[in-house]
Amino acid sequence: MISLGRISKRSEPYVLAAIILLSLLIQARSGQFFSGNNLVDLARSLIVPALFSVGCMMVIVSGGIDVSFPAIASLAMYVTDKILLASNYSGNVILAYAISAGLGLLMGALNGFLIGFLRLPTLVVTLGTSSLYTGLMFGAFSASASDVPPAIARHGKEILFTATNPTMGLTSNMPSQILILIAVLILAFLLLRYTMLGRGIYAIGGDETAAERAGFNVRGIKMFLYCFVGVLAGITGIARISMMTYADPSTMLGMEMTVIAAVVLGGTRVTGGMGSLTGTILGVALMTILSNSLILIGIPTYWTRVFTGAVIIIGTGVTAHQTIATRRRRAQSQKAAA
């Protein structure tokens, strides 16, 4: 049923084309892009931003915006880390994920309450809670970089396979955390596509009043959504520190803007209602490849920011231009049809 015309209106193909072009450029400049170990390295770097982007995309689809997820992830993982260290816990890492997810849930619930029940503007609320959570982490918990408990350290050493670059003999390990990403993606896909809850998220983003009248529990869905983002952030926090076997409370802060940029780059409509997991992952992949290949391309460190800035501007510019073009085309075809 999907026609070619419909596909050309989506932004996924454009992002994919951009990724391919960029890959070819990197390959040409370094001869290193399509080596097994480079791809594994990229996949590894993708895990954390991709985990964040799933929740971020869902929030944008619902018509909101969330800038608090890095703060939630940091505080949740930090408190978890400290609890486990203090209790000399040496069991399974699942407990770490559970605690962190639980803390994320609580923090997300505050967002959800303020946004869903009090109907406060999402950007302002999450800016506020973000400030609150980071402040708590550094103030009340006087957080600083710390060791990780053995459970997390062991988890960090679990690797799925090792990719070797045949020409140079370099090896890269695929961390097991990629499984978490895959699981989250599958879960999010099922949630968004096959549950009323997921369709409700799209419905709210399309028209909130209509959603309410149709019988969607708008408050409940928003509550769920921000809780979900919180849980996801908590999990991401543990994934991050286990991959580094080192708990640095500030390592994730400031990621919100790049993640949002990646999500929008992937075709999610800033005003809500539209967005796909495929597009989101492509957007994140593009940003990840970009930020992890500046040396491979051979851009001097001093000029990397200029390059990233230019790519954000050009990338979003193309997407913006393309949606406007689509809108125009649609208006004209409607006129023609009438």
Binding site: Y133, T134, G139
Partner: peptide, 8 residues
Amino acid sequence: FYRDVIWG
């Protein structure tokens, strides 16, 4: 950092 907490 309590400034951030109070502020938020």
